[in-house]
Design a protein around this nucleic acid. Structure first.
Lengths: 135, 135
DNA sequence: TTAAATGCAAAAAATTTGCAGACGT
DNA sequence: ACGTCTGCAAATTTTTTGCATTTAA
């Protein structure tokens, strides 16, 4: 709330309740799809329209305020733009988490082997989370 | 042609000209989107329908014969199912290439740090390919 | 011969757009 | 007060489905 508002102001866009809801949802550690977001926000804010969610997600992507996370065989999820990091996807419960890993070594290898000038990497691990593994 | 036919037979599905075209397109080193495929196949096979491309792509995904490659900010591409490998995406020309890298070390790190039981990883580098870098 | 595949057209799902009214600054 | 944002409905785009016909085995 506080910080969501500040984030929006820093990016120079109007602070509306709809946007505050979106940012607040995306601030959690769970990464959500467009429809997750819409369904979730509707509970506390029934009048929000799906078009508004789309418009804001697109606008926020354009201004590099949020990012899309594409997971194999899954709908895209969205997250606030943070320091570069990798992702873990649990095939059992569907959760997506962040993980920080040092990718310099592997990126250097890839650059040397391919001749590419690499400036971004997307690394997603799929498996079973500890909680699901127990059951 | 030869080998496309063999691949289809090995997977126990009927060998049709439409399927041969799809497999043959996907055999190249360039990874294509659904629409790339459709447009490209239509040139040599004008009667193919988009629905057929979708049906076959879906069926081939289900039988694990091909795989979807999701690239940030891009349409999905498809490739024949090969040994695990990573991808390079050129932000200039849009090309997607395979690259083989040893991911054991980083995967072990991720598993230890997170407690996940990891069985798959998707690693995509974005940057500029050597050819585009020259221009 | 027969089950499966194709192509078409229609249906459904996902995303975008235009615009009048509401709202933030 | 002004320009932006919202919500609605309609338009587009993407993907799926049903079905009559064709085709591979």
């Amino acid at each position: 709330m506080e910080s969501s508002e500040r984030l929006l102001r820093e990016h120079g866009i109007k602070v509306t309740p709809q946007r505050l809801s979106i940012v607040s949802e995306l601030s959690g550690r769970v990464h959500m799809s467009i429809d997750d977001l819409y369904q979730s926000i509707k509970k506390s804010f029934p009048s929000i329209s799906l078009a508004t969610v789309y418009k804001n997600i697109n606008a926020m992507m354009d201004m590099n305020f949020i990012q899309e996370v594409k997971i194999p065989n899954q709908k895209s999820r969205f997250e606030l733009n943070k320091e570069p990091h990798s992702h873990l996807f649990c095939q059992k419960c569907g959760k997506v988490e962040d993980i920080e890993l040092e990718l310099n070594t592997i990126t250097t290898q890839a650059a040397q082997k391919s001749g590419y000038k690499i400036d971004e990497q997307s690394l997603i691990f799929s498996g079973i989370c500890p909680k699901c593994a127990k059951n």
